[in-house]
Design a protein around this nucleic acid. Structure first.
Lengths: 145, 145
DNA sequence: TTATTACATTAGAATCCTTATAAATAGTGT
DNA sequence: ACACTATTTATAAGGATTCTAATGTAATAA
């Protein structure tokens, strides 16, 4: 569906001297089409049928390349494995403590916080991170039983 | 120093039917006194001299108990291991991307964000988390060379 | 006190996620 | 098509955390 996003991403990669291999293309395409925030292993399993010989290291390698170029963000939540998000527009996440679901939500970026932190601490601020935790409506219903 | 906090925590544990063993007491005390946000391994190493036979599993077990009771919060930053924080006072963290230093800073709690997220997503919000990342003044000087 | 029970600790193995290695493979620009 | 070099692959290695089974210890009841 977002063919233009895929093409843009490929152009960005090429512009940085990154080769477009079939595996790389597939990982990128999967990430762009997925609304969830998949783990490396989920991506690996999803592409297993298409690339039976692909190594899990390839998935990690490509995710690292995408992250370094700025195409994806790596999210480290409480659970064991990292999740990858290719939605680079400014948004935050709310995470269900019961089922682990991650939902996007938008909020004006907290620039004030960054500038205040900079003044108070003397840091040179690069970015910030914020998440909200709670129980999603599905799990609220579950728990009601 | 915060003997009352330690005593309160112990009372909370006892109230939940958790036994106070020497190792458990030591882990709890260390966490309450530490201004940094130690990893399990840091706690393990810090208590090594006092408890030469303590297993690293004991540290993990106790941290899990404390977390389940709500005495500490587990924080996962980008790096490999979790950090543990006695989540009592409201404050945020700013983290140096160069040396890993974690500095506290205060900011009015982002209640608006929580309530907006609640409305938009239908979650029942329990808490949020925010950190600012950047380069501390020491590392800025280093880099200037 | 003694026996019983349930909870804790220990040491080490096991597991999971991620990265490193080295050889083979395959894009890309010319 | 060639040469150059990035990439993939399979596997090993690494680190963090959890599991297991045996042992130890605190609380409780008889």
């Amino acid at each position: 569906m977002p063919d233009h996003r895929l093409q843009e991403a490929i152009d960005t990669l090429k512009g940085s001297g990154v080769r477009i291999t079939p595996q790389r293309h597939a990982v990128l395409e999967y990430l762009l089409n997925s609304m969830t925030h998949p783990t490396a292993d989920e991506i690996y399993k999803a592409l297993e049928s298409k690339f039976p010989n692909m190594s899990v290291a390839t998935v990690y390698n490509n995710l690292r390349v995408f992250r370094e170029i700025g195409l994806v963000r790596e999210l480290t939540y409480g659970d064991s494995s990292s999740r990858f998000d290719c939605n680079t527009t400014d948004h935050y996440h709310i995470i269900c403590e019961s089922c682990g679901k991650i939902v996007d939500f938008h909020y004006p970026s907290l620039n004030e916080v960054e500038s205040l932190a900079e003044q108070v601490t003397g840091f040179d601020v690069s970015h910030h991170r914020m998440e909200v935790y709670g129980t999603c409506s599905d799990c609220q219903k579950e728990n009601a039983h």
